[in-house]
């Protein structure tokens, strides 16, 4: 399979001399769900946010389908972001906008600010939004305000918003951390199936090792700003988990 996203020698320090990421090398292929696991503060979030440049890298290269993302600015960065869908831990919906408006936010990169302001989106975008509302099971919620939804519903809207971009890769930063176990499974299921249906790779940061094992095709374990495990879920042993999270008492 062809490599879609290739990260090489990536480092990031928020404060000089205190690197959060210490040289990450990862390749992502055009299919499959990759789960990145690791304890809090180990740089998972930073890594995923660097890919679409919500955070700027300190050094290293991020090659996305032949495009170097690490140094682009302005219009080129916006055009690159359109191709990368992102799902957030706290959903990050615009609370006072309707579900439909939140979905159409995914098309803002393609619509002029004037037309966006007047809520004039191409009919195929609106049709796509209605279709996605069906997929996420919120067909009757189009006109409800986002802040009236439950956590699980909000995250579904968050995923639909990312899919509205017709992305070439889907990133998810702790998408299940604010949700109950049952909803978490449903959200992971949705991420996985949408990745398969759209033929795009999905990269998910996740705390829950069991969820990662259940849904991922590949697990990347990080600790202290480095990748310490990279392989299929069935190769992830307790020894690896001790290495990733430290200690062992919590495993029993």
């Amino acid at each position: 399979m062809a490599v879609v996203l290739s990260i090489k020698g990536l480092t990031k320090s928020y404060k000089p001399g205190v690197p959060v990421l210490k040289g990450i090398d990862l390749d992502f292929e055009e299919r499959g769900l990759t789960a990145i696991i690791g304890s809090s503060g180990t740089g998972k979030s930073t890594l995923i946010r660097i890919i679409n440049r919500l955070v700027d890298p300190s050094d290293g290269s991020i090659l996305f389908k032949g495009l170097e993302l690490s140094s682009i600015e302005g219009r080129h960065l916006r055009e690159a972001r359109r191709r990368i869908g992102m799902v957030f831990q706290e959903y990050n919906l615009v609370e006072r906008l309707s579900v439909m408006e939140n979905l159409l936010t995914g098309r803002l990169g393609y619509v002029s600010p004037m037309n966006a302001w007047r809520r004039k989106f191409p009919p195929e975008d609106v049709a796509h939004a209605l279709e996605l509302l069906d997929v996420i099971g919120l067909a009757d919620f189009a006109h409800q305000r986002a802040d009236s939804l439950s956590g699980g519903q909000r995250q579904r809207v968050g995923i639909a918003r990312a899919l509205m971009q017709r992305p070439e890769i889907l990133l998810a930063d702790e998408p299940t951390s604010s949700l109950d176990p049952k909803t978490s499974v449903e959200i992971m299921d949705l991420l996985k199936s949408q990745g398969v249906n759209n033929g795009i790779p999905v990269v998910v940061n996740i705390h829950d090792v069991e969820l990662a094992r259940r849904f991922a095709d590949r697990i990347v374990g990080m600790t202290g700003g480095r990748v310490v495990f990279d392989g299929p879920p069935d190769q992830l042993s307790d020894d690896h988990l001790k290495l990733i999270y430290g200690g062992e008492g919590w495993l029993q």
Partner: peptide
């Protein structure tokens, strides 16, 4: 919320 809108590649005015 701003971060999420930015992440879609929206221009500043949008």
């Amino acid at each position: 919320q701003i971060e999420a809108v930015r992440a879609t590649g929206a221009p500043f005015l949008s």
